[in-house]
């Protein structure tokens, strides 16, 4: 018990140190600035398109959901690249030896990188929701969901369901981020980590090994379809949690989140996480880190 507490405390310290250093590192800062710009401009463009096509969203929630649905796949590669440098930043600056000569074990260091990666994924999704919901509020208003004057769902209920969907979405993306940390754990330079990481990202995306739909969702003539980043068109695992939310804004209540597609996604993502964690743990244990 005390060892577990010590483990958690050290990981928390490492994460805090990571946040301090990453928030001052221009690559990471520009990455998130890029995501913010992407979110705002994407949201505005999407509104403009809706206006010209004379389709209006049913509500601010509906609008926000479509915005997030479209942008989350575009922002994910940016976050992924930032995750790829998490370990490499310490190895390339040799600071890893300063960390490991403090009361910090290699396993604590590795786990802290996973926690930081999860934080970055969460920040990304939160940023998109913040922008999308602000847009929804500005263009359509965010009150209770009504139809013909009757309240179907309260605003709180809708936001709660959005939060649940986001939670599952983050779990999906976390397993992609885990791949980034694993690549990073084997890299010595940041450039190498990013290049190898992106190769893995697109190759594994192409053969549908990584779970999220890594592509651009576009709609045309009322049908929305996925423009995959990869050219191999093997069946894709769609963004299940956002798919579940799709009908919510049209008045269909969500009876349960514990449905087979979500369960399948969790199993797949859990396996990915376990696999990538094991690989990176072996790498971090065996590596010499002094080059």
């Amino acid at each position: 018990m005390t060892t577990l507490l010590g483990f958690v405390r050290t990981v928390a310290r490492l994460v805090r140190a990571d946040v301090t250093k990453l928030s001052r590192y221009w690559v990471v800062v520009s990455g998130f600035v890029a995501i913010a710009i992407l979110a705002v401009s994407g949201m505005m463009i999407f509104y403009r398109i809706e206006q010209t096509a004379n389709v209006t969203a049913d509500s601010g929630y509906d609008f926000a959901l479509s915005v997030v649905n479209r942008l989350v796949d575009v922002s994910m590669p940016i976050v992924y690249v930032l995750v790829c440098i998490l370990f490499a930043i310490d190895v390339s600056n040799s600071t890893v030896k300063c960390i490991l000569t403090r009361p910090v074990t290699r396993m604590e260091l590795l786990v802290s990188k996973y926690v930081t990666a999860l934080g970055m994924v969460t920040l990304n999704v939160a940023l998109l929701w913040a922008v999308a919901l602000s847009g929804g509020a500005a263009y359509y208003g965010l009150g209770d969901l009504t139809e013909n004057g009757y309240v179907i769902f309260s605003g709180g209920y809708v936001l709660g369901q959005f939060a649940l969907g986001t939670f599952f979405l983050i779990l999906g993306f976390a397993s992609v981020a885990a791949m980034g940390v694993a690549v990073s754990a084997f890299s010595s330079t940041m450039g190498g980590a990013i290049i190898i990481g992106l190769i893995f990202f697109f190759v594994l995306g192409a053969i549908s090994v990584i779970p999220a739909s890594l592509g651009l969702t576009v709609s045309s003539g009322g049908e929305s379809f996925l423009l995959s980043f990869s050219s191999l068109s093997l069946p894709k695992q769609p963004l299940v949690p956002l798919g579940v939310l799709d009908d919510l804004t049209t008045g269909v209540a969500i009876e349960s989140w514990w449905i087979p597609p979500i369960q399948r996604m969790l199993v797949v993502c859990g396996c990915h996480l376990a696999l990538f964690f094991t690989i990176s743990a072996i790498g971090v244990r065996k590596r010499d880190f002094t080059l």
């Binding site: 250093k21 001052r24 590192y25 221009w26 930043i89 600056n93 040799s94 600071t95 030896k97 300063c98 000569t101 002094t290």
Partner: peptide, 12 residues
């Protein structure tokens, strides 16, 4: 300890 030369984050 300082092992094999100093190491720091150059951007801090």
């Amino acid at each position: 300890a300082m092992v094999e030369g100093p190491a720091f984050y150059p951007f801090l």
